[in-house]
Amino acid sequence: MSASLALDVAPGTSALERLLSVVRRRGFHIDALQAVRASHDHGALSVELEVSGERSVEVLSRHLQNLSDCQRVRITGRDFEGARARRAS
């Protein structure tokens, strides 16, 4: 299955690296990634991820929520065509 996630990530050493490491280790591929500095929160990153994998995306989101750097994790979409098309290509 594929899913999209939106995360608010606090500024911190290796915050993005840590987040991506969890996604990989918990069994998901990253199909798309966008990270921009949030205008409303000094230094924080607003991250959007499209992931695919066989495991539960709810469990992945809870693993991400356990990271000290992750202030908020939301599942914003599931089984969207974009991710499938990218995997197929």
Partner: peptide, 27 residues
């Protein structure tokens, strides 16, 4: 060491400023 231990810690710090030591230890 920060990179090596990323997947096996709850959290980790590279202390970049001496003034941040109290906050880092507390956290």
């Amino acid at each position: 060491v920060l990179g090596i231990t990323l997947p096996i810690v709850k959290h980790s710090y590279l202390v970049s400023e001496v003034e941040s030591i109290p906050g880092v230890v507390r956290e």
